[in-house]
């Protein structure tokens, strides 16, 4: 498209616009649908960005943290704990290793047993909290060494429940992207239908314009401009409402779990602003295709 045509499309030609009669109700429907689609797109986008963030966060946090559990008879427990801590201190890649105190272990169990049960009297295994540094440690090697020297130690690096969580977050992000693509496709289909309806309803106008020597491109532009601007306006309104909706969601917090993390962060707030221009682009392409096809069929 030439620069002149693009400028004409954006700035418009007030007189050329009047050539096609105004269509109140259809125009409002187009506005409404593109607004609703943009609104949904904002949420799909928020979901995709939040689940991506969650996947990365979980993968990173869980990769670093591990728990060492020492199951030993009461008289050997202290000795084995000391031995295990010694091994952990020598292991490259382990940043800190700390045995949990009796009170901390009791606090962890409180949700299950209640505060009144004397947890301290139970033969509990000793827990050691292990935090890896950025480089990480060799879990398999550590496991083998512990097996030889501290028979009661079981290393849990959380892989078992980390992998499905990260997979779930990735799947959620994929679903969100598929939704965004579907929303785009549905918008294109809807605009194509509306443009075809408008072209059919204005068949007489098109005939008169052809009769007085209008080029197909001139006629098409009158329709393309209309639908592009409607999609742009509708999508802008939808995005504003969608962003307000996302903004009103509670702040991310530990108590709320992952649900409250839905939303945009930092530069992420700028991404939904791409939806209106993209919606306009979709409408432009859909109307251009519909108009070219329709006008080509006329004599």
């Amino acid at each position: 498209m030439s620069e002149g045509r693009l400028r004409k499309l954006i700035l418009g030609d007030a007189q050329a616009d009047r050539v096609v009669p105004p269509s109140g109700f259809t125009a409002q429907l187009t506005l409404f649908v593109s607004g609703a689609m943009a609104f949904l797109a904002v949420f799909a986008l928020a979901l995709s960005m939040a689940s991506g963030r969650l996947a990365d966060q979980w993968a990173e946090e869980l990769a670093r943290a591990a728990t060492l559990r020492i199951n030993a008879p009461a008289e050997q427990r202290t000795a084995q704990t000391e031995a295990a801590l010694e091994i952990l201190r020598q292991t490259p890649g382990v940043a800190t290793a700390r045995a949990l105190t009796g009170e901390e272990q009791a606090a962890l169990l409180a949700p299950w047993f209640g505060a009144s049960v004397p947890v301290g009297d139970l033969p509990l295994p000793q827990l050691i909290e292990v935090t890896g540094d950025d480089a990480g440690y060799d879990a398999q090697g550590l496991r083998l060494r512990l097996q030889a020297e501290v028979p009661g130690a079981v290393l849990d690096d959380h892989t078992r429940w980390r992998a499905p969580l990260v997979d779930a977050a990735h799947a959620l992000r994929r679903l969100a992207w598929v939704s965004i693509l579907l929303i785009g496709g549905a918008t294109a289909a809807m605009i194509t239908l509306a443009a075809n309806a408008a072209l059919a309803a204005n068949a007489q106008v098109i005939e008169v314009l052809r009769l007085v020597g209008a080029l197909d491109s001139y006629i098409a532009q009158a329709f393309i401009r209309r639908f592009t601007l409607r999609a742009l306006t509708g999508a802008a309104a939808g995005v504003v409402l969608g962003m307000i909706g996302v903004w009103l969601m509670p702040e991310a917090s530990d108590e709320g779990g992952f649900l409250t993390g839905l939303g945009f962060q930092g530069w992420g707030w700028l991404v939904p602003l791409l939806i209106p221009p993209l919606g306009a682009l979709v409408a432009f392409a859909a109307t251009t295709r519909a108009a070219t096809k329709r006008l080509g069929e006329l004599s």
Partner: peptide, 15 residues
């Protein structure tokens, strides 16, 4: 939907 004068001027407009 356009007044006579604009209809008469239509060929000018579309060209």
């Amino acid at each position: 939907h356009l007044p006579v004068i604009e209809n008469i001027a239509l060929p000018l407009l579309v060209s």
